[in-house]
Write a protein that binds this DNA or RNA. Structure first.
Lengths: 208, 208
DNA sequence: ACCTGAACACCGTTCAAGT
DNA sequence: ACCTGAACACCGTTCAAGT
């Protein structure tokens, strides 16, 4: 039996988070939220202002959650890689909320704790000044960009025509192995790790 | 004096494209579009079905426009880089429409002509099979990811606290030059060119 | 302090009716 | 074939009114 507690700001935010996490921001309508909470639509306004303010609050919570990042491993390169992997995992766990953070232009703020951790490892690797800043920024772009691309790919419905349809042996300029590679879905974990390691090895421990 | 032509499918699509290009998909309401065209709201439905079908049509047009890609330069590496630069330029020229392509999961299809051009250059550089496919895919992720990240950055409103606020000499672990670097906005053109060249040089003409 | 229902100005879409 | 206006089911939001 559900005991109906008094409505509270926290309860509104939790219910809203659940709706957005499960079905995306489009599913968050004030009327649906009110139905979920068993209150009048307008009661929500008393607690959180309006829909925009509600979303702002969810975004703020997400930024906080992304802030909890710490490096693991022995060498600076290993520790930087661990930050990259942890970041990707956290970003992927809440795609809709991350998209809201992006929309509000708060990615930079969200990434700051990770940026700090990466700067620490760049320093440990002997990088200083502009070189350190550029290495960290390149890696940040790499990580965030990768997650954005793969999220898009996952969300993608069955595509026609898609890579498997278009990459036959013929179109691949007499390279059947290449056609086979493109026909299969890429292993994103490997692709991410490889490209991150590439950036780290060339900028962290490259020729200097 | 504006002569009112008969309404046509093309006119509807052009007006819709203009609205989306200028103010984003949120600005595309059937009522506003009708006002723009000087017709009844429902006349639009006769020509293009409904709002979703209209957006699908805009997306299809965008995919076609992105298909016109050709490589320039002498060496395969130069030509691959020219594809990357052209792609970034095209993607940046129509951010709202590209976002719609992403939403509909058609990025893969949109990228195919560029992918073909890159495969050609990978082959010219002597790469074959899986190695060629992986090199091309890594570069694709790099390009699309970069554009997604920089678009987000541009859209970002003034952030508080932002990088300039948070990166003082103190927080930068006694590295004032690093603090200065983070306080300034990155040169995105340079950052893009550098990271693309990194990927190309390591995968196209790397140690093999 | 907290919550309600009515009302308003917006949406996209359907459909019978016009020409 | 092409276009219209009325109507419907949704939105977010405001506000006077209740307790």
């Amino acid at each position: 039996m559900v005991v109906k507690d008094a409505l509270s700001r926290g309860a509104v935010l939790d219910a809203a988070t659940e709706l957005v996490r499960a079905h995306g921001p489009g599913a968050l309508t004030m009327r649906r939220l009110a139905a979920e909470l068993g209150c009048a639509v307008t009661a929500i306004y008393w607690h959180v202002g309006n829909r925009e303010a509600l979303l702002d609050e969810l975004v703020a919570r997400t930024v906080e959650e992304l802030g909890e990042i710490r490096a693991e491993g022995r060498t600076p390169a290993e520790r930087a890689e661990s930050v990259a992997l942890a970041l990707r995992r956290k970003l992927r766990a809440r795609p809709h909320l991350i998209a809201l953070v992006h929309e509000r232009g708060l990615t930079e703020l969200m990434m700051l704790p990770a940026q700090r951790a990466l700067v620490h490892e760049a320093h440990a690797a002997g990088l200083r000044g502009t070189a350190a800043a550029e290495a960290v920024r390149a890696l940040q772009f790499q990580i965030v960009g990768f997650v954005l691309v793969e999220r898009n790919r996952e969300r993608a419905p069955a595509q026609y025509p898609g890579e498997p349809d278009l990459w036959t042996a013929e179109t691949a300029e007499q390279d059947p192995e290449l056609a086979t590679s493109f026909a299969a879905a890429p292993d994103l974990d490997t692709l991410f790790r490889t490209s991150v390691r590439g950036v780290i090895s060339s900028l962290w421990e490259g020729d200097r």
